[in-house]
Simulated scan of single mutants.
Amino acid sequence: MLTRTVLFIICLLPALAIAHNIAGGDASFVASNAGAAPGPFIYLGAKHMVTGYDHLLFLAGVIFFLSRALDVIKYVTLFAAGHSITLIIGVLGDIAINAYFIDAIIALSVVYKALENMGAFQTLGRWKPDTRAAVFVFGLFHGFGLASSLQELQLAPEGLLINLISFNLGVEIGQMIALFMIFIVFMLWRQHPSFQRQAFLSNTLLMTAGFLLMFYQLAAWQLAA
């Protein structure tokens, strides 16, 4: 099931890479809005996360082998804490980071998680990366990615903090909705004998998707220069 999903995503990567940014009517609203608008910004945050293929691929990798809800909550909380910090600090502090570079690192986080699931770091012994720390650190980069999407729209200073908090709340809501669906799919898949047989292949495809996303962003960066 996940194998087919990742293959489908790989085929759509160029279109998805363009569609992920806040654009169209949403961008027009954000650019013209002045003052606090918590409702619309919650909606925009949720929509941004649900359509955030790179964030969702990373989360899918994080919970791939997690069967207990408490473990899922623990790792997702670390991820949420990381991206919440840098989302708010990035926008309020006007920290300008190249969006292509950040998106390439976000794609690299997908590669990292897939490699970890494939056991690539087992031979490193005590030098093996700490899974919890890695999820938090990559969460920081994911937050800068969210911040860069908002910074491109030049938000009005009136009501900025409330709008940022609302957007972040929307991101969390969207993340919980998407994560619940992914967790259910994994839970059902684990009951089938194909899960163990296809786990390595699925993570190989996940890694491939991450590499393709990374190369796409780096190429776009060079073309935009």
Rank of each mutant, 00 (worst) to 15 (best):
T3W: 09
L7R: 13
L7Y: 09
L7M: 01
L7H: 05
F8I: 07
A15V: 15
L16H: 02
A17G: 15
A17F: 14
I18Y: 13
I18S: 01
I18M: 02
H20I: 03
A23I: 00
G25R: 03
D26N: 14
A27Y: 07
S32Y: 08
N33C: 04
G35I: 12
P40Y: 06
I42R: 13
Y43S: 08
L44V: 02
K47Q: 09
M49V: 01
V50R: 04
T51D: 00
G52A: 00
Y53V: 00
Y53D: 09
D54V: 10
L56A: 08
F58C: 12
I63V: 14
F64W: 15
F64I: 05
F65S: 04
L70K: 11
V72C: 03
Y75H: 05
T77S: 14
T77F: 00
A80S: 15
G82F: 03
H83D: 05
T86E: 01
T86A: 07
L87S: 05
L87G: 05
I88L: 11
G93P: 01
A99S: 15
Y100R: 01
D103A: 10
I105K: 07
I106Y: 08
A107I: 09
S109E: 14
V110P: 13
E116Y: 12
N117F: 04
N117C: 10
F121I: 04
F121G: 06
F121E: 14
Q122L: 04
T123V: 11
L124I: 10
W127D: 09
K128P: 04
T131M: 03
R132W: 06
R132T: 11
A133C: 07
A133K: 12
A133H: 08
V137C: 11
F138W: 10
G139V: 09
H142K: 12
H142P: 04
G143T: 02
F144V: 13
A147K: 02
E152S: 13
L155M: 15
A156Q: 12
E158R: 11
E158H: 13
N163A: 06
N168H: 07
V171K: 06
E172S: 00
E172R: 14
I173V: 15
G174V: 05
Q175N: 06
Q175F: 06
M176I: 13
F183N: 05
V185H: 12
M187W: 09
L188M: 04
Q191V: 10
Q191I: 07
P193D: 01
P193T: 03
F195Y: 13
Q196S: 00
R197S: 09
F200Y: 15
N203A: 07
T204K: 03
L205S: 10
L206D: 14
L206A: 01
L206F: 01
M207A: 15
T208P: 10
A209H: 01
G210W: 13
F211P: 02
F211T: 14
L212R: 06
L212N: 00
W221L: 10
W221F: 03
Q222G: 06
L223S: 14
A225D: 14
